[in-house]
Write a protein that binds this DNA or RNA. Sequence first.
DNA 1: ACCTGAACACCGTTCAAGT
DNA 2: ACCTGAACACCGTTCAAGT
Lengths: 215, 215
Amino acid sequence: MSSPASPARGRPPRLDRARTLRTALDLLDRSGLDALTMRRLADAMDVQAGALYRYFATKQDLLTAMAERMMDGVADAAAGSGDWSEQLAALARAMRTALLAHRDGARVFAGTHSTGENTLGFADAVVGVMRAAGFPDDDAARALHTTVNFTVGHTLEEQAALQPGSSSPDVLAGAVAAGAYPHLAASLPALTSTDFTRHFEFGLAVLIAGLRARR
Amino acid sequence: MSSPASPARGRPPRLDRARTLRTALDLLDRSGLDALTMRRLADAMDVQAGALYRYFATKQDLLTAMAERMMDGVADAAAGSGDWSEQLAALARAMRTALLAHRDGARVFAGTHSTGENTLGFADAVVGVMRAAGFPDDDAARALHTTVNFTVGHTLEEQAALQPGSSSPDVLAGAVAAGAYPHLAASLPALTSTDFTRHFEFGLAVLIAGLRARR
DNA sequence: ACCTGAACACCGTTCAAGT
DNA sequence: ACCTGAACACCGTTCAAGT
């Protein structure tokens, strides 16, 4: 029972999961997900690429661990903040904030399926809020999916739009102007607006009103 | 004015956008998105990889054209099918069906931003339904985003779960059993259910009820 | 005009060998 | 035990040259 936890016998390792994860999140913030390669991460740690595979079996494993780390503390957002709808809103907002805290955070999260304690703790908190509010277990589970879907989907769009090289507004405006899309033309201001918090709050309010109606 | 549309002068080209797109969608269905490389696509068309770049500037361009093609006809789903809520539901269901029609269809769509007529026509139809129902232009635009977010997000999960090698249910059940997640444990049947149509219809009903409450 | 051939600058991953 | 060095089997993209 001392083999995995034995004290440093030879030289101290230059690598370990925690330090690698920190460096990977730093690199993500500086360079974005497309530039986060195992080779570049190894460079940032002054190590050969192959050495990373002692701590993460695959790149997918590393990304999953990064997503799990991003969710640290998010489950605590509901603590005593009013009724179920306010608690659900607090959890969704905290998740959006956590994803926004890292460049391409939503893409990292969307591409993984963590079953770590932060992610499952968050899910448990959401389902707990719904069950306490009187929703059947099945509906509570489905409300979790809908809430996470919405939050991740929204933040994916938000971070895609904010990134350099995203010419979305102009391109969209041009395409709408060139074609026969009367309804898109009429709603173009909101369609090309970058007030993402308003978009998010609209969707969240719709989601909560819909859940309330189904209780 | 005859230069781009001039009749075949030399040998007939082995490549063109339409044929390449068809082959790419075939390859996607047979092998999945991860195996859809420019080199493998070129192989399937008996051509060198570089030749594809005469018709698509980048791989991203090709994927965008594929997404656009998947959306063919989806905008017509709302034609005279009851009130606004039934029309919105019909559009969302048609989009899910269109994405499910191709392996990794949701991933392809989520990774692109088509401004083609199928995609914009669908968006115009959704916004049109909402405006006709009396929603303000801004809310109609935001309802579009919420609806597309939900539909793509749901179908992403659905296709991820249905794919080979996706051990989601067991892994999740194991993780929930190992940790202290009372609410997840209680709702595990719904959480691990593969009746995705029910999940989708639940979210859609919540979305529509929420929109109705805000009108 | 359309495609080939070959290169450029990369990837993730594996694994014998060193220390 | 931990990491290096080097390889394997690929990528997307570019572009001179052929036909």
